[in-house]
Structures are given as C-alpha cells and as structure tokens.
Deep mutational scan, measured.
Amino acid sequence: MDPFVVLVLCLSCLLLLSIWRQSSGRGKLPPGPTPLPVIGNILQIDIKDVSKSLTNLSKIYGPVFTLYFGLERMVVLHGYEVVKEALIDLGEEFSGRGHFPLAERANRGFGIVFSNGKRWKEIRRFSLMTLRNFGMGKRSIEDRVQEEARCLVEELRKTKASPCDPTFILGCAPCNVICSIIFQKRFDYKDQQFLNLMEKLNENIRIVSTPWIQICNNFPTIIDYFPGTHNKLLKNLAFMESDILEKVKEHQESMDINNPRDFIDCFLIKMEKEKQNQQSEFTIENLVITAADLLGAGTETTSTTLRYALLLLLKHPEVTAKVQEEIERVIGRNRSPCMQDRGHMPYTDAVVHEVQRYIDLIPTSLPHAVTCDVKFRNYLIPKGTTILTSLTSVLHDNKEFPNPEMFDPRHFLDEGGNFKKSNYFMPFSAGKRICVGEGLARMELFLFLTFILQNFNLKSLIDPKDLDTTPVVNGFASVPPFYQLCFIPV
C-alpha cells in the first residue's frame, strides 16, 4: 500500500478516535471549553503556568470542569470545598494515580508514587510505618536530621561569610537525610558517588519541569519514536535504579534480621516474612523503585522550600529577627534545636507554614484518578478519569488567608500570638494520596531553619526591599529566582 495512503488512514483513525473520546459521556461530565481534535484544549493552557490557566477557566466554568490534554480527559478541581469533598470525603474513590506514560515506562507500575490498587496500598502502608518507626538502627529519624543539620551548619561556616548561592548546600542536606534513612549512610558533600546522585536528581527535576515532558505524557507515541530530553530522564532513572540495586545486594549479604539498620533492611525482612506468599507485593523490584521514589520526592521539594525560605527571610528581616528572638528565648545557644521545641515556638512554626503556603511549591499536585465511576456534584466521572487538583486555589484562598499574595506569618497566628491551624494548609496535597514523607519534610524544615538561624545572621547583597521573591514557574514547580547571601556567624 502507498505510504501516503497509510499515513492518511492513520491520521484519520487518530482523528476519529479523538472525536469519539471527547464526545463520549460529555453530557455527564462537568462543563469545559470545547476541545480541538487530537490536541484537545492545549492551546487554551499556558504550559509554563498551568495553575494560572486553571484559575482563569474556573471563573468561566465553575469549581469543577473538564479539560482535554491531547486525548487525555481530565476533570479539574478548583477551590477548597471541591478539593476537600473529593480528596477527603470521597478519598477512596479519588485515590488513584493519574496516567503518566513516562513514569509507567520507567517504574513499570512498581513503587509508591505511580503505583495503584493493592500494590500501592500495601507499599504505602509499609513505608509510612517504617518512616514513623523511630527505632531503626537504634537511631531515631530526628537524630538523623539533627546530625545532618549540624553538618549543614559546618558547611555554611566554610563560606566564611562571603557571598554564596545556597542551592547546592541546601540540596545536599535533605538528600543526605533520605540516604541515611534508606542506606544507613550519609555522605560527605564532596563524595563523588553522592555528587553523581545529586546531579541525576537535579537533572531529572529540570527535565520533568519542561513543556516537552508534558507533551510526551499527552502524546506517548513520542516516547519511542522521537529524540528528546525524555530519553535522558529514562537513562538517569535507570542509572539510579541500578545503583540502588547494588546497595540492596550489599544489604542482603550483611543484614541482621533482628537489628534492621535502615529502610532497605526493613523491606528485606518483610520480604523474608512473605516469601511463601506468591501474591506478595514485597519484591526486589518494588524495593528498588520505592527507594528511588523516596529519593526523588524527598530531596528537591525540601531543598527548594529551604532555598525559598531563606530568600523570604532576607526580604523580611523583621520576621527573621522575631524567629531568632524566639530561638534565643526557648533554645538558647548551648544546645541543639529539637522537635519538642516546636510546641513552644508558635512564631517560628507560623513562619515555616507561611513559607510553604506562600511559595505554593507544587501548584497542581500530582494528578489523581478516580478508581470507579463516581457521581460528584451531579456529574458522572468515569472510572480512570484523571483528576487535576489546584492546590493554589486552596493555599491562596483570600477568605482563609487575607492578602494571600503577601508573605505574612500572621496567617497562622491567632490574636494572642498562638499558632493557628488551618484546614486550607495543603502543600502536601490531601486525602489518601497525601505525601508519604510529610512528617519528615516538616521535621527537616523546622530543624534546618532553626539550626541555621541559631548559628548565623543572614545578610543580603542588596537592599532587602529590592529582592525579587516572585516565583519562577516552570510548569511543574514554583522555584525561587537566583540569589546570593552571606551567612554571618553569630
């Protein structure tokens, strides 16, 4: 058959498939802009700032609406009420993970971030239990974070109060905490193996944040037939998995079943207990991918939040002064901060919360999916439909947070200066898919920041009023603009 005829037939089939998918069930789905064949609503979305586009569309179609990214149908949730109703009140029905062709290629359905069903539930339950087990290797997770915080302070001392970009050092600290939990080992910041790991993690975040990856996920045929950065992403992930597998083999040879040292040991012990169960989800494949998931999810998000926190503290020296006064009063100079201190430091706690609220790190979270046909607000959402959640619409709700575009710790303080919780605080998402490392991340943010401010004054290279804190939105995360500062020993 003539190649031209084959091409026309293929394009015609794709067009018909697109029209059929977009028209099927439209009477039951939430409203939304009319999609174009094949490309859907992509032309109506700013790929570099999806969150802003969703906010604009919500003003037209309401808090629940339908979009098509290519052939992929998505239902968008915008605003606290619908997000709570879906992710919390109907948590089980909305607990699936959205379709990610690239991740599915890399992870093969294993791990904790992109798995679904029984596998996801069992691996998540085990990971939560293990991360909360403060007795691994007779050292609590808090001990590990405190140790890394001391190392971080010593690295900052080496800058000798000269101007520096904190990106690298602030990236090393949370990565080392995860390494300590998974591998029972922290690395020197100049260790070549550690630097290679950091390089792969950072490069992957840069790649994932590009519009090209959005295109690959919406048109998965590209993955096999086109060159691009997605190939580098898959190569980096394969490198990390190979490295983790080597460490798993080392653990198998040296493990003491009665004295687990780290996450890998705990997983291997669980595998041993379930070795007679042919349906067990505790396999080497799941261990390797879960460890890679924890490394990827637990490094860049925390380091970016820390980097943004220091920029905001530079911009608002009056806030920094209040935090340091609270540190001096509650902790002093002669001991290290600990998590028990947080309950006695409402202002510092409010500042950490406000940093996370203000920066809105992951504006749309990772997409969910419905696990069955769901009736939601008089609409029928078919099983498997991807759910896109606007966390921006919750964290920047102007009824809950007056002047949401302003950095103001009073958003989390009552009139008496006591810490005030808010149900709208969802930087880790909400419901059954809430970030498994939430507790660890909150511990790291509090301890790293208090250790830094206990030991250093922060000095800006320019007038604080002239510092730009506008986030650089890159399609996946909101990151701070480049800046330098000086760490002046107190």
Rank of each mutant, 00 (worst) to 15 (best):
D2G: 14
P3Q: 08
V5E: 06
V5C: 13
V5N: 11
V6P: 10
V6Y: 15
S12G: 12
L16E: 00
Q22V: 12
G27P: 12
G27C: 14
P31V: 05
P31M: 05
P33F: 00
I39N: 04
G40Q: 01
N41H: 02
I42G: 07
K48H: 14
V50S: 05
S51R: 14
L54W: 03
T55M: 12
N56I: 08
N56G: 10
L57E: 01
S58Q: 07
K59I: 07
I60D: 10
I60R: 10
Y61S: 02
G62F: 00
L67Q: 00
Y68D: 10
G70M: 03
E72P: 00
R73Y: 05
R73D: 02
M74T: 09
V76Y: 04
V82G: 05
E85R: 06
A86I: 00
I88Y: 06
I88Q: 08
L90W: 15
F94E: 01
S95K: 09
G96D: 06
G96W: 09
R97G: 03
G98K: 11
H99K: 14
P101Q: 08
A103M: 14
E104T: 15
E104K: 01
R105D: 04
R108K: 15
I112S: 05
F114M: 13
S115G: 08
N116R: 11
G117E: 08
W120M: 04
K121E: 14
R124F: 00
L128I: 14
M129Q: 15
R132Q: 15
R132W: 09
N133I: 06
M136H: 15
G137M: 13
S140Y: 08
S140P: 12
E142H: 07
D143R: 08
R144D: 07
V145I: 10
V145F: 03
V145K: 01
E147T: 14
E148V: 02
C151K: 10
C151S: 11
L152H: 00
V153E: 03
V153R: 03
E154H: 11
E155H: 13
R157V: 10
K158V: 07
T159A: 09
K160G: 14
A161G: 14
P166H: 02
L170I: 08
G171V: 06
G171C: 13
C172I: 06
P174G: 11
N176M: 04
V177F: 04
I181S: 05
I182K: 01
Q184R: 10
Q184G: 15
R186V: 04
Y189C: 05
Y189R: 05
D191K: 05
Q192D: 11
L201P: 03
L201Y: 07
E203L: 05
I205N: 14
I207Q: 06
S209E: 07
S209D: 06
I213R: 08
I213E: 05
C216Q: 05
I223F: 11
Y225W: 10
F226I: 15
K232H: 10
K232P: 05
L233V: 11
L234K: 09
L237K: 15
L237D: 04
L237W: 13
F239H: 13
M240V: 14
E241F: 06
I244H: 01
L245W: 10
E246S: 12
K247P: 02
K247G: 07
H251R: 06
H251K: 05
E253V: 11
I257S: 14
P260Q: 05
F263R: 01
F263M: 09
F267R: 01
L268R: 02
K270G: 06
K270Q: 12
M271T: 07
M271L: 08
M271W: 06
E272M: 10
K273D: 14
Q278L: 13
S280R: 07
T283H: 09
I284N: 07
I284F: 10
N286V: 04
L287N: 01
T290L: 09
A292G: 09
A292D: 04
D293G: 05
G296A: 11
G296F: 15
A297I: 04
T301W: 07
T302Q: 06
T302L: 07
S303V: 06
L306T: 03
R307T: 11
Y308D: 00
L310T: 05
L311E: 02
L313P: 01
L314A: 05
P317I: 05
V319N: 04
V319W: 10
V319I: 12
T320I: 10
T320G: 09
K322P: 03
I331E: 00
I331W: 05
S336D: 13
P337A: 08
P337H: 01
Q340Y: 15
Q340G: 14
D341Q: 04
R342V: 13
R342G: 06
H344V: 08
H344R: 14
Y347A: 00
Y347T: 03
T348L: 06
D349E: 12
D349K: 09
V351W: 03
H353N: 06
V355I: 12
Q356I: 10
Q356E: 03
I359C: 15
D360Q: 04
D360G: 05
D360E: 03
L361K: 03
P363A: 02
L366P: 04
P367I: 04
A369V: 11
A369P: 01
A369C: 11
V370D: 00
V370T: 13
R377M: 07
R377G: 08
N378W: 03
Y379S: 03
I381T: 00
P382I: 03
G384D: 08
T385M: 06
T385C: 08
T385K: 00
T389E: 00
S390L: 09
S390I: 09
T392A: 07
T392E: 06
S393P: 03
V394L: 11
H396P: 02
D397P: 01
E400R: 05
F401V: 01
M406Y: 10
D408E: 08
D408M: 05
P409S: 02
R410S: 14
H411S: 02
L413P: 00
E415C: 09
G417R: 07
K421A: 14
S422E: 01
S422H: 05
S422R: 03
N423H: 15
Y424P: 02
M426R: 05
M426V: 15
F428N: 02
S429N: 02
S429P: 03
A430D: 07
G431K: 01
I434R: 08
I434A: 13
G439A: 13
R442H: 11
R442S: 13
R442T: 12
M443C: 13
E444T: 05
L445C: 03
L445R: 02
F446N: 00
T450G: 05
T450D: 04
F451L: 07
I452D: 04
L453P: 02
L453S: 04
L453T: 04
L461H: 09
K465R: 11
L467N: 04
L467E: 05
T469L: 13
N474M: 12
G475E: 03
S478Y: 11
P480S: 07
P480N: 10
F482H: 15
Q484T: 12
F487V: 04
I488R: 08
V490C: 14
